[in-house]
Design a binder for these strands. Structure first.
Lengths: 196, 196
DNA sequence: GTTAGCATGTAAGGAGTTACATGATTTT
DNA sequence: AAAATCATGTAACTCCTTACATGCTAAC
């Protein structure tokens, strides 16, 4: 098994979970719907779809009937759904990295509340580590470095501080919802603010 | 000629411009002094140094005297200085990309005022394009997408808006300095706010 | 009828990381 | 004397982009 990995696979599984789709459309949605708006090229996407088909995560239906624009529609298999559940339940260090965090958040509506909180808090502590490094480096920098570099570092620092505040709000909102310990069955109910 | 390219080469040239250094230290400085705090691994850095040596941009002096910790100190050659001047003078589209912009800004103290302004303005227009895309995608998104994704997209949008405001300040400060058209010889004088 | 957008793919290559391998020196 | 940090390097691998190649269909 090729064991295709990474953010792209995760994104594809999540989007196909909603409805079957062909590659061309998947690419657009990855670029626009997933908060990251990271656009993958076809050179990444199409080979990934092949690998995932080989791995049995998705199934390809070739709609190349004569006279009609050729299309290959992909559908999630049972294995694919399992894999998505597996990925969506991960709340370890890997899920607090920039890109991975973005995709995880994009699928939060389908994520358990406990997992959501752990990811949010993990992300925050990851950023707080970064703040430490940045503040230290800024303290040394103010003596040695020119003021353009300083301006850039300060701006970077403020950006991270802003993200921490944003996370604090998300975490607070998340906690305002019904506490997960009360539930017998793990619930993915979103707190009021996040209902559709 | 291998024509080593990219941000890493630029960063190395800029740092060696100040003073000769060995690889281990270069790596740390790239991570901390350059506003981007992007840390390259040795697996990237050491091969890059070899290529640059082959290209004649830097010169390696091996301090492996017996009993002393082995060190290879790199010094900029005349060609290397030329190359750095070439890179630092570029104000085209490539220099408004995230990473490249960071390095360019890190070396702004050695950049001509005209070039500085063109880079700052180019960066701003690049971000304004991104704002357009984001705002459009956000308008569609609010209908179709769950509110977690929405929160992420809104936060992303605000981050870009903040960077634009930051750039506006830098540009204004830059313009407050003596106008470059008055100068016969291009000057790299920093505006008052940015003097050391 | 031609331009723009839809739709799929491959080959070559760029840029970087991880894991490995080795050894000296300083700090605890 | 052990642990941390200094110091250099390579091989295999991952992930992704660019450029190429092909052809259909809708809109102007």
């Amino acid at each position: 098994m090729a064991r295709s990995s990474g953010v792209l696979e995760f994104a594809v599984l999540g989007l196909l979970h909603d409805s079957p789709m062909h590659g061309y459309e998947l690419r657009k949605r990855i670029g626009s719907e997933l908060g990251t708006f990271r656009a993958y090229s076809y050179g990444s996407l199409y080979p990934a779809l092949k690998t995932m088909t080989k791995d049995g995560l998705i199934e390809a239906d070739d709609f190349s009937g004569v006279g009609r624009r050729s299309k290959i529609v992909y559908t999630l298999t049972a294995d694919g759904k399992d894999r998505f559940q597996e990925l969506i339940s991960q709340s370890g260090p890997a899920s607090w990295e920039d890109e991975a965090f973005g995709v995880h958040l994009a699928f939060f509506a389908r994520t358990n509340k406990d997992v959501r909180l752990r990811i949010l808090e993990g992300r925050r502590s990851r950023l707080e580590e970064r703040l430490d490094t940045l503040r230290t480096s800024l303290r040394n920098a103010s003596a040695r470095v020119d003021n353009y570099t300083l301006a850039l570092q300060e701006h970077g620092l403020e950006s991270v501080e802003r993200e921490v505040r944003w996370l604090n709000e998300l975490i607070a909102t998340e906690r305002d919802g019904s506490p997960s310990s009360r539930r017998t069955k793990a619930s993915s109910d979103a707190p009021a603010k996040f209902e559709k």
